[in-house]
């Protein structure tokens, strides 16, 4: 902990304290539970794209693998039923293996070719989840899923503070792990590959193995995010919950936050997901309370403006802050 830079420490201090002033329930918790889930996915993508410079457009697929692996291992319609904690652990391992398996044949590809392979992997994953009904229940989703338990006490969805702190705890663990990796031999290799693949290869850094470790780390974190997402819903939802748009959201989090910056990713998740599940929801609520809305006029329905507002916000953010809200040099980290 002592080595965490100030912005990250401040983030966790504020986040941990927020529920004390936000009451015990409300939209705030819904939004922040989603924010923390996507922080995990964002942290994973930050390792792949931010540190190592590999564009991955298929993070949602790893989330899906995490969610479905967790569901199959824990749901009572399957024989495994290993419980929440073992389920989470197994999911992280499965995510890493999945990342390895995709990475092994494809990480030799350069730049945007890798991007489209990961995008294709995302599409394939969705189709497989949809079509292999015997295992995945198709579009039905697998439910219900076990709640986290601490001894005899289990966490219900209504205990929003509990979930909030639990998820925040996972984010903290992920940040510590990523920071540790970043400072390890692998982490330095990631950055050097990103900066100059040729030179780093000359210095004896094996490019493929380095990329594989980054890929597996990122996938494991995304799978963790997916498993927690499913646990929170107590259902995997349908496969389309992990579609390309989710990968895009993860990418926006990392880039808007600041590529290669852990604190930036955390802030990016707050901004992007917060806009989605807090600001836009509130706007629509206010408009609907003010009596705006009509089925026959498309412009009059506030919900129909959400894409536009989201898109404008994205363009404005990168226009005003092309390096992200909190680029690595402002983070106070090593790089």
């Amino acid at each position: 902990m002592r080595r965490l830079p100030v912005p990250i420490l401040a983030y966790f201090a504020i986040m941990a304290a927020l529920p004390l002033v936000m009451g015990t329930t409300g939209l705030f918790y819904d939004a922040f539970q989603a924010i923390f889930v996507f922080s995990l996915v964002g942290l994973g993508l930050n390792v792949v794209t931010g540190f190592t410079g590999l564009l991955n457009l298929g993070m949602a697929a790893f989330m899906a693998i995490g969610a479905y692996a967790f569901a199959i291992l824990t749901s009572d319609i399957y024989p495994f039923q290993i419980g929440f904690w073992w389920g989470i652990l197994a999911t992280v391992a499965i995510g890493a293996v999945a990342g390895f398996l995709l990475g092994a044949p494809t990480l030799g590809l350069s730049g945007d070719y890798l991007a489209i392979v990961t995008m294709g992997f995302g599409e394939i994953t969705l189709d497989v989840l949809k079509n292999l009904e015997a295992v995945t229940k198709g579009t039905q989703g697998i439910n219900p899923l076990p709640r986290p338990t601490f001894g005899s006490w289990s966490l219900d969805l209504q205990q929003e503070r509990g979930w909030y702190w639990l998820l925040l705890g996972f984010v903290l663990l992920a940040v510590l792990a990523v920071r540790r990796l970043e400072r390890s031999r692998s982490g330095r290799a990631w950055l050097s590959i990103r900066e100059d693949a040729l030179a780093s290869q000359c210095m004896g850094i094996p490019p493929k193995r380095t990329k594989m470790i980054a890929f597996a780390t990122g996938s494991a974190l995304a799978a963790l995010g997916g498993a927690l997402f499913a646990a929170l819903l107590s259902s995997t939802g349908e496969p389309a919950s992990y579609d390309f748009q989710v990968s895009i959201l993860a990418l926006c989090i990392v880039i808007v936050g600041g590529m290669g910056s852990v604190a930036g990713t955390l802030v990016g998740a707050v901004v992007m997901v917060g806009m989605n599940s807090l600001v836009l929801v509130k706007l629509a609520d206010w408009a609907s309370a003010a009596g705006v809305g009509s089925a026959s006029n498309v412009l009059a329905s506030p919900n129909n403006w959400k894409y536009l507002i989201f898109g404008l916000a994205l363009i404005l953010v990168v226009r005003l802050k092309p390096d992200g809200l909190l680029p690595p040099r402002l983070e106070g980290g090593a790089s």
Binding site: L55, L251, C252, I255, G311, A313, I315, V318, D323
Partner: peptide, 11 residues
């Protein structure tokens, strides 16, 4: 960076 451009395109 190329990726900021990409996000702008997504927007």
């Amino acid at each position: 960076s190329k990726l900021s451009l990409l996000v702008s395109a997504i927007g």
